[in-house]
Design a protein around this nucleic acid. Structure first.
Lengths: 245, 245
DNA sequence: TCTGACCCTGTAGGTTCTTACAATATCTTT
DNA sequence: AAAGATATTGTAAGAACCTACAGGGTCAGA
């Protein structure tokens, strides 16, 4: 354990502790820059994976990339052929760039992406997929010229990345259900019974009120959630985690 | 950094390193027992969350629980009312048991679960949800009487748990078939549109099939999910992370 | 070849939902 | 005291859902 030029374990935990005191994305960016450089990484990006109609720049949370590379990446739409991205979509575990497979013969675009990255000094790297409640959430990809990438350092980078991402998300999406008026306790109750498969009449019997009243609450919830019907209202309430079920 | 009675950081990284050499579930169990006890935890369980027709014992990967408690937990079907489990389904971050909310007045079954756990000496604990490609994958819950649960130790427990789970899964890989028959792609598609507030007729127009066919898929999904209507089917599908929305 | 799984469609009738029109009562806040 | 949010209930008509019945087509695997 000790005796190395620097302790990856202590570095990682110190970073995680430091995160608690960082209150802005740029502060997190700076802290990541410092800590990751100790592992040999000069560049990194924290981003979601763009959907079919999304652009990369719409899902980037933080990045420290060489000037020019990001522009090229966007203009060439490299994200559609990036082997790192591809593997990221299907991977739970972190992986080194070298472990992201592609066919050099049959997939020239993949090779192109990796070659152009090399032009910017990004030849080797490490990528961590981040998964949440609904599956894939984001990835953190980092690269450098003189990497300290071993079985010992990977867990440290893993830990740092997971906590950094959580911190970034906590700061960048504080809204969530704050949009629109909040549901009342009664409205949530009706939706919960609806989610359990109960009809308005059922719920009324259960709660000792009339079917009409149940319907009124459901309608009210539909308006607040901008849902066109009960099913969508329940789906929205579940997605926004408004129901304790 | 050093100077404490034991270094949580070094303990965690040493554990992760040790994992690589463990080739059996029981060896992992032993290693977890040793390392977690250093943090004050006597009991722990590594398990998936049971689906609609699944029993807890079908999804347990590893456990060190007091004799009798597991039997009681199964026979009473406590998993359906366990506040820890409920929060686990909606949480990305690790949390202390005390942070899992329930209404002591209106949810007597939740209180019952927690009280019976206390009878077995499991009053306080820590729970880590594990997420993968498709969202929720498993949880690791641990408890003890004299916990070392601080902002410093949580990341250590987090790291240990994530790597332990990955190691366990790698060894126990046999694909866990979700209880009952899986939904077909078409069924999931119908539920996704229903969750978006579309009627059967709407969905039919969107997909270029008849309303009747949409209904047929919905009905089929209802049967597989043991739902009494479309709303409950959508709710179940969302809770079990079957829809990519 | 046959079986099973999946996808597709039709009719018909009872049930449930959704909306539009109103209305009363309680409670908190201004 | 007045205003506003919340909870409650009523009627009624049209839309949507659910069920039960019955069937045809495709495709993969035994």
């Amino acid at each position: 354990m000790g005796g190395e030029s620097f302790s990856y374990a202590n570095e990682a935990f110190a970073f995680v502790e430091r995160l608690d005191h960082l209150t802005s994305p740029s502060a997190i960016l700076d802290a990541m820059e410092v800590s990751l450089s100790r592992f040999g990484f000069q560049n990194f990006i924290v981003a979601g994976l763009p959907g079919p109609r999304e652009r990369v720049d719409q899902v980037v949370l933080l990045k420290k990339w060489p000037p020019g590379w990001f522009d090229l990446y966007i203009s060439e739409d490299f994200v559609r052929d990036d082997p790192i991205i591809r593997r990221c979509r299907n991977s739970v575990q972190p992986f080194a760039w070298i472990e992201a497979p592609f066919d050099r013969e049959k997939e020239p675009r993949c090779l192109e992406v990796m070659n152009r990255a090399s032009d910017f000094g990004m030849t080797h790297g490490f990528c961590l997929p981040i998964h949440g409640i609904n599956g894939y959430e984001a990835c953190i990809s980092m690269s450098g010229t003189d990497l300290d990438l071993t079985a010992k350092t990977k867990p440290a980078l893993h830990l740092m990345s997971v906590y950094a991402f959580e911190r970034i998300r906590a700061q960048m999406s504080p809204e969530r259900q704050s949009a629109g008026k909040p549901l009342t306790a009664r409205e949530r109750e009706m939706l919960a019974w609806a989610a359990a498969g109960k009809s308005a009449a059922d719920t009324g019997d259960i709660l000792g009120i009339t079917e009409r009243t149940v319907t009124a609450h459901i309608v009210s919830a539909c308006h607040k959630l901008e849902a066109t019907n009960k099913t969508q209202a329940v789906a929205r309430a579940l997605q926004y985690r408004l129901l304790n079920i």
